[in-house]
Computed example of a mutant assay.
Amino acid sequence: MTRVLLVPGRNEPLPGHWQEWLRGRDPQRRRVRHARRGRYVTVDRLAALAAAIDESAEPTVLVAHSAGCLTVALWARGGPGPVRGALLVAPPDLAEPWTDGESSMPALPAGRLPFPAILAASRTDPVMAYERAAHHAERWGAELVDLGDVGHMTTADGYGPWPLAEELIARLAAP
């Protein structure tokens, strides 16, 4: 069996968010919790993800949104652990005011990820241009999925239920 860990963005997802929809479809899926809502404190995010991954040796698929993509990419520099793959949705070009106020925002890592990845990007994401997302997909060795005109894939953009996510997770979970 493959477990699924949901890695949220800057804030925990709203009740109608697609990550919450995924969690509601399978009670075994759990969200990685972080301590400081609204602020990205790199060390806290990496510690929370590492702790969630370390809870089990079971193969894991990470499903990250927005700043959660940064967390996954930074964590991956230390090796794959039991991670089978990652679905990275709408990664951001991060800048102030997302920092913790005590340190600068880390750049998105440039190296190939140590596990298979799918990067799903929007053509109308106000947080990262599609061409930049394609560039990061190539650098990370990730398959690029063009989501079309879906904004930043938030509840305000209409996501909610997102059946394609289930298909992409299934592909990553396959041995």
Results as ranks from 00 to 15, higher is better:
Cys69Leu: 02
Ser56Arg: 08
Ala47Pro: 06
Glu58Ser: 11
Leu46Phe: 13
Asp54Ser: 12
Arg33Phe: 05
Ala51Cys: 04
Asp44Ala: 08
Ala48Lys: 04
Ser66Leu: 12
Ile53Ala: 03
Thr42Arg: 15
Ala35Leu: 08
Leu49Met: 07
Ser66Asp: 09
Val43Pro: 04
Ser56Cys: 07
Arg39Ile: 10
Arg45Val: 10
Glu55Val: 01
Tyr40Ile: 08
His65Gln: 05
Val63Asp: 03
Ala64Thr: 06
Ala48His: 04
Ala57Leu: 11
Ala35Gly: 08
Arg31Pro: 12
Glu58Cys: 12
Ala47Ser: 12
Arg29Gly: 13
Val41Met: 09
Asp44Lys: 08
Gln28Glu: 14
Val32Ser: 08
Val41Phe: 08
Arg30Phe: 07
Ser56Met: 11
Leu46Val: 05
Val63Trp: 09
Leu49Pro: 07
Pro59Glu: 10
Arg45Glu: 10
Thr42Met: 06
Val61Glu: 15
His34Phe: 13
Glu58Val: 10
Arg33His: 14
His65Ala: 02
Pro59Ser: 06
Asp44Asn: 06
Arg30Met: 15
Ser56Asn: 04
Ser56Gly: 09
Arg33Lys: 13
Arg36Lys: 06
Arg37Tyr: 14
Arg39Val: 04
Gly68Asp: 01
Ala48Val: 06
Arg36Pro: 00
Ile53Met: 03
His65Glu: 00
Ser56Phe: 15
Leu49His: 02
Arg33Gln: 14
Ala50Ile: 10
His34Leu: 12
Val32Trp: 02
Arg37Ala: 08
Ala35Trp: 01
Thr60Leu: 11
Thr42Ile: 04
Leu49Ile: 03
Ile53Val: 06
Ala50Met: 14
Gln28Trp: 06
Tyr40Phe: 15
Arg39Tyr: 13
Gly38Thr: 01
Thr60His: 06
Val63Ser: 11
Ser56Pro: 09
Glu58Gln: 14
Cys69Arg: 03
Ser66Met: 05
Leu49Thr: 00
Asp54Asn: 10
Ala57Val: 14
Ala47Trp: 02
Ser66Phe: 03
Arg45Tyr: 09
Pro59His: 05
Gly38Tyr: 00
Thr60Cys: 12
Ala67Val: 13
Glu55Arg: 10
Ala51Ile: 00
Gly68Ile: 00
Ala48Trp: 05
Thr42Pro: 11
Val32Pro: 09
Ala50Arg: 12
Val43Phe: 10
Ala51Gln: 11
Arg37Lys: 15
Asp54Pro: 03
Ala35His: 03
Leu46Glu: 14
Asp44Met: 06
Ala51Thr: 05
Gln28Gly: 14
Arg31Trp: 07
Ser56Thr: 05
His34Ser: 09
Thr42Trp: 07
Ile53Pro: 04
Leu49Asn: 03
Val41Asp: 13
Tyr40Thr: 14
Val43Tyr: 10
Thr60Ser: 12
Val61Ile: 14
His65Asp: 00
Ile53Thr: 02
Ala57Glu: 11
Ser66Asn: 04
Ala57Tyr: 08
Glu58Tyr: 05
Val61Lys: 08
Arg39Ser: 08
Ala35Gln: 13
Arg37Thr: 14
Val61Ala: 12
Pro59Trp: 09
Ser66Val: 02
Ala50Tyr: 09
Ser56Tyr: 08
Arg39Trp: 07
Val32Gln: 09
Ala47Val: 06
Ser66Cys: 11
Val63Glu: 09
